[in-house]
């Protein structure tokens, strides 16, 4: 039986883990290498590493930090931030990433999704979509949430999977860092339409929220940062709550 994945996320800025609210007001949450060690020890199902200012600073991801973080991971590692070319994808894989998250470049240069999937396989291409609610629909943002597009999130999710994305990372910017829970309507709208796995992100404040993301939102994996980084809960707590709610997790 395939298990629901629990994924801690390291948002990295200038080589440090940070955590904000609605993508701003960033607070230091430690060293990524040390955090990776802790999550590997706790038995996280995967780890996500996002260089959140690589696109807005118009620079490449910090490969040596990725490298050192990957060295602590005997679990799958998804890395995103400033990925613009096949060469960037290849460099991240060589640095120890297993999957690569593409966000801004997926919009600026959509063919990268297709080329990436052909070259490295769809399973390696995670398209990350940052979304804000806009009355009855959801709009995509790029550059770490700094730039609004006119693209509808649901249509975009469907399009990128047709192009070859093997997984989607859906982040609600409205909920990010608020602890109010996932935007389950957004998740449901996407998971019911796309054929690939979806990682729910943005808003987890309680363990019950993790359960909601899967049961109500239809997500295949749940991502959280603050609740794990600041020690409120560990991976085992999350697993226990999800198992008690009838979901399949690793023991």
């Amino acid at each position: 039986m395939l298990k629901t994945r629990i994924i801690p996320c390291l948002d990295v800025k200038d080589g440090r883990v940070v955590k904000g609210i609605n993508f701003v007001d960033l607070k230091d949450a430690g060293d990524p290498v040390e955090q990776a060690k802790v999550y590997d020890f706790q038995g996280a199902d995967e780890l996500c590493f996002l260089d959140i200012t690589a696109s807005s600073d118009n620079r490449n991801i910090l490969l040596d930090v990725v490298n050192r973080t990957a060295d602590q991971c005997f679990m799958p590692l998804t890395v995103g931030g400033g990925v613009r070319s096949l060469e960037d994808i290849r460099n991240l894989l060589l640095a120890g990433a297993d999957k690569v998250g593409i966000n801004t470049s997926a919009i600026n240069n959509p063919i990268l999704i297709e080329e990436g999937a052909n070259k490295f396989g769809s399973q390696c291409i995670v398209v990350a979509i940052d979304v804000k609610k806009n009355k009855d629909s959801w709009t995509v943002y790029t550059h770490g949430g700094r730039k609004e597009t006119r693209i509808d999130a649901i249509e975009w999710a469907e399009l990128v999977t047709e192009k070859g994305a093997g997984e989607l990372l859906i982040t609600s910017m409205d909920r990010d860092g608020t602890g109010k829970g996932f935007d389950v309507d957004l998740l449901k709208a996407i998971t019911s339409k796309v054929p690939v796995p979806v990682i729910a992100s943005g808003g987890v404040g309680t363990l019950e929220h993790l359960v909601q993301g899967v049961k109500e939102g239809g997500a295949n994996a749940v991502l959280a940062a603050s609740i794990f980084h600041f020690g409120k809960y560990n991976i085992q707590d999350a697993r226990k709550a999800m198992t008690e709610a009838g979901l399949n997790t690793r023991l």
Partner: peptide
């Protein structure tokens, strides 16, 4: 092979 609507491909994650 997708045997039901909700089944996602790639097969991604921990399986027994």
């Amino acid at each position: 092979v997708k045997v039901e609507e909700e089944m996602k491909v790639p097969h991604m994650g921990w399986n027994s």
